[in-house]
Amino acid sequence: MTLLLFVEQVLNGLQLGVMLFLMAAGMTLVFGIMGLINLAHGSLYMIGAYVAATVQQATGSFLVGLLVALPVAALVGMAVEMIALRRLYPRDHLDQVLATFGLILFFNELVKIVWGPQAYFMAMPDMLSGSVDIIPGIPYPAYRLAIVATGLAVAILLYLLITRTRIGMLIRAGATNREMVNALGVNVDRLYTIVFGLGAALAALAGIMAGPILALEVGMGESILILTFVVVVIGGIGSVRGAFVAALLVGIADTFGRVLLPPAIAEMTIYILMAAILVWRPQGLFPAHA
């Protein structure tokens, strides 16, 4: 592998990594704070993409699509939390898995009814449709660079939100010791709903940015869901910082695994990575719980 190709593959790995981070950030918070395993997280990714594509087709603007789809997905997430998931917090994980699996089926059928069974098209924003010579002779799609930039920017914003704001303090406190936050008289119901909405918006952002690269199709959220779980587990449940490091790690490992190893082993790379890290640190890299 030449140096140029190596650089290009590192970029590909980073791009996959930041997408995984957007998915994992919301999931790890929900899991860490509410103790809820939410399989339907991928459905919000799908809904974000479909809504953005529809608005984009109607208005011709990717940005408008993005700005409409984010709050829509956040509202859908909050509604799901208030209507269905709230009842599941005290139940055990098996019940949660069953119920949220049911939600996956519900959302998949809903999308099929509204948008049809055929794959749906989302165009690339014109401004970003070209390619940039990151190094002379290696054209890299501008849109993929934009994904990396957006992902890193969101990571910084999220970091500031969590470390510098009151709501961030509550989120951190909730991830570390839920009962204590409750005992201190914080409106926990509202906190949970906000966290869930935030997670939904992040998942939708990942879906919207993936839209122009991928086929929008029923069940598109499930293919990224499994990788997201791996990231959450490696990073340490409840830790956004852990999710960030783990997402980049998984992104790079998966990319180089696919390129360098025979297919049968390449498909296992990230699981081997996960197993190795869990042997070394059973709680993940940055466990939020003490």
Partner: peptide, 19 residues
């Protein structure tokens, strides 16, 4: 080249292909 079934992104494979 054989890729994982239902793999969504082919950026890494396309870079190898171009090379």
């Amino acid at each position: 080249v054989y890729t994982a079934i239902n793999q969504p992104d082919y950026a890494a494979e396309l870079a190898q292909l171009r090379a």
